[in-house]
Simulated scan of single mutants.
Amino acid sequence: MKFIRIILFPIVPIYYLVTWFRNWLYDKGFNSSESYDFPVICVGNLSTGGTGKTPMIEYLIRLLKDEKSVATLSRGYKRITEGFVLADKSATADTIGDEPFQFFKKFKDIKVAVDGNRQNGIKELTATDEQTEVILLDDAYQHRKVIAGFNILLTAYNNLYYKDIVLPTGNLREPRSGAKRADLIVVTKCPKTISETEKSKISSRLKLNSNQQLFFSHINYSEKVISKSSELALNQLSKFTLVTGIANAKPLVDFLNKRGLEFDHVEYPDHYSFKPTDTEILEGKGLIVTTEKDYVRLSSNNESLEPNLFYLPIEIEIDKKKAFDESIKEFVD
């Protein structure tokens, strides 16, 4: 794969120019965009994935849901449906996508919708009888047809965007200059021990505008794994199989290794759609631990896995939580 990316390097300048020109057309108003008179918050990245968008959306839901009527709007990657879908009791990971289904399962007091056309999705959400006061756009940073009132750009500590180049050799969906559209940038998946000196170095390399805010966050892993009917403390786990279908499993693998846990790692591509043959193989693996996103896909129509299928919950912790929360609440109020 790395070799293929290297030989495709001559395409990089072409991709760069096409995406740069597209942004220029939107910036200058030649391509039309829709703005809104109510709070729309976009969470996204420049990279192709693995920056922690889902935990950030969940953080914002927890922050706002008790004071505002919140809705999430995602594309619904790899779903079998088309157009606008508002999650209801018949929703599954197949009909709305794994991440939206995760939101729907965890937060019963918000609306969860999917639509590849974000303009139409927002229109449909605001047309329902129930009032929507804040819309959280999941992975919509490059969706320039919608002008979010507040843009949160994520970049992972181990793959900061200023070290990367655009596709197909690099991982950036658009040139690094696109970061200037962000109101707030969060360096995610940092080590808990990151120093102020290192934060300062990263800040200087990111070259923020005067109106941009920078925060750092790290992942907090739970001390227990959860199944449909039970929980197990991490220190109760004997040898198990770790199953992941996410963009970057390294932080999770590192965490489990540091805990001295014994496991085999079965790794699938991001958003992998598990097949019956995969289920048959995993049935013989004994205890399975996976991510929450993978759990919603693995547990769907795979009752044979249920007794031994657990997920490890995570949440993000932001270094200057009070300032971050105030920035969000100031925008939505």
Rank of each mutant, 00 (worst) to 15 (best):
T92F: 08
K201P: 04
K293Y: 03
N302G: 09
N235K: 08
K285V: 08
D66Q: 13
E99N: 06
A233R: 11
F215N: 02
G50D: 08
D115P: 06
R62V: 00
L60K: 00
V253T: 14
E326M: 15
D264S: 15
T277D: 05
L206M: 08
D138R: 03
P269R: 04
Y157E: 12
K285Q: 13
L73K: 00
V225Q: 12
Q142C: 08
L298M: 05
A156E: 11
I110E: 04
P10C: 04
E174G: 11
D333P: 01
L312R: 02
G116I: 11
L184V: 08
F38L: 05
K322I: 14
R259S: 13
S69G: 07
T81D: 06
L64A: 10
V12T: 15
Q119W: 00
S200R: 10
D270F: 05
G50S: 10
K163V: 04
L206K: 01
G44I: 02
V253H: 11
T126E: 05
F274Y: 15
E330K: 15
R297L: 04
H218S: 15
K111M: 13
E82K: 15
T95V: 10
T54V: 06
K108W: 06
L172Y: 04
G286P: 08
V225C: 12
K285T: 10
Q236G: 13
T291D: 01
L86P: 06
T132G: 02
P251L: 10
K163I: 02
P313G: 11
N31T: 14
E124N: 14
P175N: 13
S69L: 06
I11L: 15
A148Y: 05
V289Y: 02
L136Q: 03
P10G: 04
I219Y: 05
F21E: 06
T51C: 14
I194P: 01
D139K: 03
N117M: 01
I135K: 03
T169D: 10
R62M: 05
F103M: 07
Y272I: 09
P13E: 12
D94L: 15
T241Q: 09
A140T: 03
L60Q: 00
T48E: 12
K105I: 00
P191K: 09
I7A: 02
M56V: 10
N308M: 14
Q102G: 08
E198L: 00
I61C: 06
Y59E: 01
D325W: 07
F274N: 01
G50A: 07
E196S: 14
E315S: 13
V112K: 05
E292V: 03
E198A: 00
N151A: 06
N220H: 13
P276F: 05
V187H: 00
L136S: 06
I4E: 04
K329Q: 14
S35H: 13
T19N: 07
G29F: 04
V266T: 13
K285C: 13
D264V: 14
M56P: 00
P276E: 07
P100L: 11
L309E: 02
R79A: 09
R181Y: 12
S47K: 04
L214T: 01
R79G: 10
F84Q: 10
A91M: 09
P168C: 11
T51A: 15
A87L: 07
Y59A: 01
Q236H: 12
Y77G: 12
S203P: 02
R22I: 14
A140R: 03
N257E: 11
T291H: 01
L261I: 09
D270R: 03
A87S: 09
Y26F: 15
K192Q: 13
P191T: 14
K28V: 14
